[in-house]
């Protein structure tokens, strides 16, 4: 397997992975989605809520708020010493007490642990009118996407590496113009591929050229995109994914040994 970094910015990391299979890529995708632990609000106790949103709606919105996760100092409830009862090593308390009028933002949540706070402080939770009030205690826990997608730290997805063949094209400028990701460069006679890795295999050029341009995605080489929501860094996501896979494979081989 050969790996090359394609691009890296605040929102995503793109990597070219060569010499593998779709099955392996899909394993990584599913592992990141379901087995990496991240923190999110799980239960909310309402003291007062005279806002327009029902308790359930506000609790749901709070649950989806992205929290910076510290995987070193927190444990999943089932694996914690307290055996699921809830203690400082597995549960974090956040409080919110606001009065209207105005928009209530996620940054107004008071966390007992300064390391675990909302990633996007300007997330509007609810809007209050004069005399409306919200007072609540929320409990955040560490869990995985298997329990609820709010615990998922982000997306990892892939596409086949684009293979583009340009034949005798009649209208190169029109085709270059049509491509939504500007893959081509064209003059009045010739169409050339300028930025192959931007291709999203949308096939607009294939349709427009009536088959003179051929596009397909490789089944052995892939472009992998890691898009974190903010709980973990892309590096932590890949490390966690590999660790979780090793753990699963070890467990499987243990079970197979028992069969002999």
């Amino acid at each position: 397997m050969e790996i090359k970094l394609l691009s890296q910015d605040k929102t995503q990391v793109r990597v070219v992975v060569k010499g593998t299979t779709p099955a392996e890529m899909n394993t990584y995708r599913r592992t990141v989605l379901t087995t990496l632990p991240a923190m999110a609000i799980d239960t909310v106790e309402f003291v007062e809520n005279s806002s327009a949103l029902y308790d359930e709606m506000l609790a749901h919105r709070l649950g989806l708020v992205v929290l910076k996760t510290d995987t070193e100092s927190y444990f999943e409830k089932a694996k914690c010493k307290c055996k699921g009862a809830g203690c400082a090593r597995c549960t974090l308390e956040l409080t919110l007490e606001v009065e209207g009028p105005g928009i209530v933002y996620a940054e107004q949540l008071k966390s007992k642990d300064p390391a675990v706070i909302p990633v996007h402080g300007k997330t509007p939770l609810v809007k209050l009118l004069d005399n409306q009030k919200v007072k609540l205690i929320a409990h955040a826990i560490l869990s995985t996407g298997q329990e609820h997608i709010k615990f998922s730290p982000g997306l990892l997805y892939y596409q086949g590496y684009p293979q583009i063949k340009v034949g005798a094209v009649k209208n190169p400028e029109a085709i270059a113009e049509m491509c939504p990701t500007n893959v081509f460069e064209a003059d009045s006679k010739k169409l050339t591929v300028k930025n192959k890795e931007a291709c999203i295999l949308c096939m607009a050029c294939v349709d427009a050229s009536k088959g003179d341009v051929e596009v397909s995605g490789s089944a052995t080489d892939f472009i992998l995109t890691i898009e974190p929501w903010g709980q973990l860094t892309p590096g932590q996501m890949v490390d966690g994914c590999v660790d979780a896979l090793h753990e699963q494979i070890d467990a499987l081989s243990e079970e197979i040994k028992k069969l002999k």
Partner: peptide
């Protein structure tokens, strides 16, 4: 897709 978007609305 699950991307956090509310912070961009303002």
């Amino acid at each position: 897709c699950g991307k956090p978007i509310a912070q961009l609305w303002g």
